[in-house]
């Protein structure tokens, strides 16, 4: 029975740790399926985390904070689309610039509100929920107790994104744009509009992932609290084969390596090694799969 409890705890911790990476990774997948690379995901997550804290601080509700984060993601995604699609700037460079901008702007904003360097005051945190009745089942019941509402939301987002990309007209058109934008344009698909939409949706999901870190997982903003999860999301998208469900599974795998360390402290896996694993796996998969990678044919090419 004790083993079962440990397994359940490990599973739930994996879920919790995977949420920010998974949401951002699905966002990356949507954006890259249309052929647009967004290296600024890390920065967008940071801005989302900050937006959520500011929203929660002003409105006194973490739910409002989540909506502010989504709105932040939409605005930043719109600006990214304007520069990359409208002004034809290099995608990688704009992404790097966005990361630098976000790492500075978040701290500057937090200081202007709370007058503290690199850390905000505490704000309203999203309440957990407990499933009625089901939570009374022994062992399994803990999975239904005090859980974050974002766990089912993330699952839903992943399934819904997979459905839209794979089974609807909008999704298939988006994929065709990523594979061959000229052909898509010739077929009468408004390439720019689809790409803008994909960037904005991807950016909003990444911002939501960042918001999870600040108002769901904790109740304040800390300097650089995203700590590489944006880049990990880009890796998860690759490992997941540019597919929303794959991205979710890859994020779960990455989160699992972190959870193992917390859950079984006697393994004594150094922190750095457990953080290394996702990047090493992704690099090996990239090199192993090589030219046969399922990446959109015209990724990064406008």
């Amino acid at each position: 029975m004790e083993i079962l409890t440990t397994m359940v705890n490990l599973l739930m911790m994996t879920f919790r740790l995977s949420i920010p990476i998974a949401l951002a990774a699905i966002g990356v997948t949507i954006s890259e399926r249309s052929g647009v690379i967004n290296l600024g995901i890390e920065g967008i997550m940071l801005l989302g985390a900050m937006g959520a804290v500011v929203g929660s601080h002003i409105a006194g509700s973490a739910w409002i904070g989540l909506f502010v984060a989504l709105a932040t993601g939409v605005v930043v995604g719109g600006l990214y689309a304007l520069f990359v699609l409208g002004f034809k700037a290099n995608q990688s460079v704009i992404g790097i610039g966005l990361n630098s901008l976000a790492s500075g702007l978040t701290v500057v904003t937090v200081k202007s509100i709370w007058n503290k360097e690199g850390i905000s005051g505490t704000v309203d945190q999203l309440e957990t929920f407990t499933v009625p009745l089901l939570h009374k089942i022994p062992t399994i019941g803990t999975m239904m107790t005090d859980q974050s509402p974002l766990i089912p939301i993330t699952l839903f987002v992943s399934l819904f994104a997979a459905y839209v990309l794979g089974r609807t007209k909008v999704g298939l058109r988006l994929t065709s744009i990523g594979e061959h934008p000229l052909a898509a344009a010739t077929a009468g698909i408004p390439v720019m509009r689809y790409r803008t939409l994909a960037i904005i949706v991807g950016s909003a999901l990444a911002a939501l992932g960042g918001a999870y870190l600040s108002v769901v997982h904790s109740n304040l903003f800390v300097n650089n609290m995203v700590a590489g999860r944006g880049f990990m999301a880009i890796a998860a998208n690759i490992l997941g084969g540019w597919n929303p469900i794959g991205a979710l599974l890859a994020s779960l795998l990455f989160a699992f390596t972190q959870a193992l360390r917390f859950q079984f402290s006697y393994i004594q896996m150094p922190e750095q090694i457990s953080q290394l694993i996702p990047y090493v796996i992704t690099l090996l998969v990239l090199v192993g799969v090589g030219r046969k990678a399922k990446s959109p044919a015209k990724l990064g090419v406008l």
């Binding site: 460079v93 704009i94 610039g97 901008l101 500075g104 701290v107 500057v108 360097e117």
Partner: peptide, 21 residues
């Protein structure tokens, strides 16, 4: 905040990369 240099740096990167803007 001393992190304001990152903001300036980020904006410079974005605008330098965007002569069209």
């Amino acid at each position: 905040s001393a992190h304001i240099d990152k903001v300036i740096q980020g904006l410079v990167i974005v605008f330098i990369a965007t002569p069209n803007f």
